[in-house]
């Protein structure tokens, strides 16, 4: 054996290298399914039917993507998803900022108890309230409307919790100085403190947008009319076409097309998303 007494540094490096090699191999499994889907989306349906292996050779065509522009309801669903996600993100930021400031900075009767109750809200999974919520929305005739899809998300306690933590971390001297200048509570909140919470707003905004864009269960049971589908529900509804496999290339093109917007968002905001995730983790 040649490794009579390897230095600690060398041994440490070896272990790291073995793990890194394993991780590299695993990344092939991460990428391969996506490449496969993209490959199929670039093939003619008839050619695929005749020979599935034809995905490995040219000709590659973009006809499937052109067909989306002509026929597909995907655009409508993307617009619906945008309205819902932007609406919910905006609403959540407003509600959570106001409540976070209130819980962190102001005194009013019952504050402690209310905050604890809101924290308990974090522990309630969506399924525990889903059935009752659906019935309430039926009575209010909120199903198949934008507010019907948006409103439940506004009750999420995570944002309030995050913003309260963030407001608490801001030095109190700042608002005390403003109070001496006779600024109103709202003015202190709006002019002095809110600008300082921008990083937290970004974190919460990204989380809310991603969660809302990808939400499947509530839109599935609330938006039952095709023109009110969000992108996730719409894409799920075309999956059943899968049985008639003459449309595999077309279906895959739709999948790529539908995945694209959020993927572009990810590429652009990657740094923020990663900081958001790990920032929320440390807390």
């Amino acid at each position: 054996m040649s490794d009579v007494s390897p230095s600690p540094a060398l041994r440490r490096g070896l272990g790291d290298h073995i793990i890194l090699a394993a991780v590299l191999v695993l990344s092939v499994a991460m990428v391969a399914p996506v490449l496969w889907v993209i490959g199929l989306s670039l093939k003619d349906n008839a050619e695929l039917m005749a020979n599935p292996n034809s995905v490995f050779h040219p000709p590659y065509i973009i006809d499937n993507y052109i067909a989306i522009i002509g026929t597909s309801a995907v655009f409508r669903w993307i617009v619906n998803s945008l309205i819902v996600s932007v609406g919910l993100t905006f609403g959540t930021l407003v509600l959570a900022s106001l409540a976070g400031y209130g819980f962190a900075r102001l005194e009013f009767p019952g504050r402690q108890v209310l905050f604890v109750i809101v924290l308990f809200g974090l522990a309630v999974p969506e399924q525990a309230v889903l059935v009752a919520r659906h019935q309430i929305f039926s009575i209010l005739q909120f199903h198949n409307t934008y507010q019907g899809i948006i409103l439940p998300g506004l009750s999420n306690a995570f944002g309030v919790f995050l913003m309260t933590q963030y407001f608490r971390a801001i030095p109190k001297e700042l608002d005390e100085a403003a109070l001496l200048d006779n600024a109103s509570r709202f003015k202190i909140f709006w002019k002095v403190l809110l600008p300082l919470t921008l990083p937290a707003q970004a974190t919460l905004g990204i989380f809310t947008f991603l969660g809302s864009w990808n939400d499947y269960f509530w839109p599935l049971i609330s938006a039952t009319r095709k023109e009110m589908y969000t992108l996730t529900v719409g894409m799920a509804s075309v999956q059943s076409n899968f049985a008639q496999s003459e449309g595999v290339g077309f279906l895959m093109a739709q999948a790529v097309f539908a995945g694209l917007p959020i993927f572009i968002v990810y590429l652009f905001f990657q740094k923020y998303i990663v900081t958001a995730v790990s920032g929320a983790a440390v807390r």
Binding site: G102, G121, A128, A132, S155
Partner: peptide
Amino acid sequence: RNALFIAPYLFFFLTLLVFPL
């Protein structure tokens, strides 16, 4: 009156989470 900052969220919290629960 300070509770007015909490009120908007609390409305949705009570109607869409606590009540359905």
